[in-house]
Design a protein around this nucleic acid. Structure first.
Lengths: 254, 254
DNA sequence: GACGTAATTCTACGCTGTAGGTATTGTCAA
DNA sequence: TTGACAATACCTACAGCGTAGAATTACGTC
């Protein structure tokens, strides 16, 4: 416990895919518990009951193990949550380049959203805590490759990446926090909410009440993303009208 | 406790500014504890130690009171956090209209950011949980008034509002979560981080390493906001070149 | 069999949110 | 003045939490 790291013989970053016997010839001193099993079970538990309901004791019970046994595979509860977040990120597979950087941006954003919608209760772990792992770097690499191919200089590419990422975090946080939905549209008292907004005493809120009462998350996602893509496109070629053809400096790299 | 609401004789939304004796002639059955005192103390406590360090017992101790006494003024701990979030929102004063909707959007966003930077540890309460209070409606009203004056139809105004808000949530969450900063720039191992990124094995990460290693939050904030403003402007007048003059249908309402 | 070692379990501590009960206090009706 | 009533506060207690530290178990190697 003094040195929570380095109980693993392979200190390379990242996580081994399977098995990973902790040491060469000592596979089962106990019940075959592994870091991967712990984190995978934690993910399913978070998916079912939410982040706040996760406790080391419950996790251990599900694994058929004493709570303290977990601490031989993870440093503490925070490390479990970090591990779940990494598991989440690892499930994202960045799509390949299409030649149109706008399409590539859309596809990468969609992949991110897909993962969040797939694990709505685990998503806040990734969206709200800053991760220390290298797992996030893969996504960063994909995004920067797209922006580089589009012709952005490195500084602007980083700014663009951070802008889009901030938007993604915000929208997805809203989407996964808005409880269970049906066909992307919030149910339950929609008409009542519209009436409340109309009577709120705020004139512009009343003016937009029909559209404020509901929130179709995919539509909002696409709207904001298209705003950012359009603005980036405009920034790339400030003089030209936006045409569906390739941008000016495309295919500069690859 | 069965009916946690309506212990207040004035069920109008919002919170009375001061005093607010719960009933006409029964001001002090005990130590003069009030909901406002509880929430204000909770805010200062959160500002000092963070959200996770807040407990009902510590809060009560600071107030010189037993923990259970708090439950006569708030329903439970979650209500305390909601109240702190409302206090946070109430501190935002939306700037008045300037006649240029782009300036108004910038000013409103800046006011939001100002509040977040002022209370970095309380900000996640507002950014991550969806609020049920009417307090947030004031900000919504301001934003919609700006977008309405700019000439957006209601549906598009809501989309625009949600896009900008999502971006704000994302950036500010990043800014307040990135620990203490000095002059907006992260200190501590900056050179080391740049070296790590260069050696990460990801070519584009290495390409942009100098700009990835640091994060000047205000610059990122302005960059993304300008992207969105430019895109909205383009959307308002798709045919015209963006001119510094007023937009097309300005001064339609006030 | 003996030993070293890693994995696991057991025990315990201080902390949490809050349900339930009781005591104190201020206001009003009689 | 007195009794009823409601609001406020405190006390006790419970189930649960993360995890430090000691004890136990099970294995591979002599």
């Amino acid at each position: 416990m003094k040195r929570p790291d380095m109980s693993d013989p392979a200190p390379r970053a990242g996580l081994a895919p399977t098995g990973a016997t902790p040491r060469r010839g000592r596979p089962r001193g106990g019940s075959g518990l592994t870091r991967e099993k712990v984190l995978q079970t934690a993910l399913t538990l978070v998916d079912r009951d939410g982040t706040e309901a996760l406790s080391m004791r419950k996790l251990a019970t599900v694994l058929g193990v004493d709570a303290m046994s977990l601490y031989h595979h993870v440093a503490n509860k925070d490390a479990v949550l970090d591990g779940v977040a990494e598991l989440f990120l690892a499930a994202i597979e960045p799509p390949g380049p299409t030649g149109d950087w706008r399409e590539d941006v859309r596809a990468l954003a969609a992949a991110f959203r897909h993962a969040a919608v797939q694990h709505p209760r685990a998503a806040p772990l990734v969206l709200t805590r800053q991760l220390k792992s290298n797992q996030g770097l893969a996504g960063t690499e994909s995004a920067l490759a797209i922006l580089h191919a589009a012709g952005f200089p490195p500084e602007e590419a980083v700014h663009a990446l951070r802008s889009v990422l901030a938007f993604l975090v915000g929208t997805l946080l809203r989407e996964v926090s808005s409880g269970p939905t049906f066909s992307g549209q919030n149910l339950g008292g929609l008409a009542g909410r519209r009436a409340d907004l109309k009577d709120s005493g705020f004139p512009h809120v009343a003016w937009a009440a029909p559209h404020l009462a509901a929130c179709h998350h995919l539509t909002e996602f696409n709207f904001g993303l298209e705003l950012l893509v359009a603005a980036l496109e405009q920034r790339l070629s400030p003089r030209r009208a936006p045409s569906p053809r390739a941008g000016p400096r495309t295919r500069k790299a690859r």
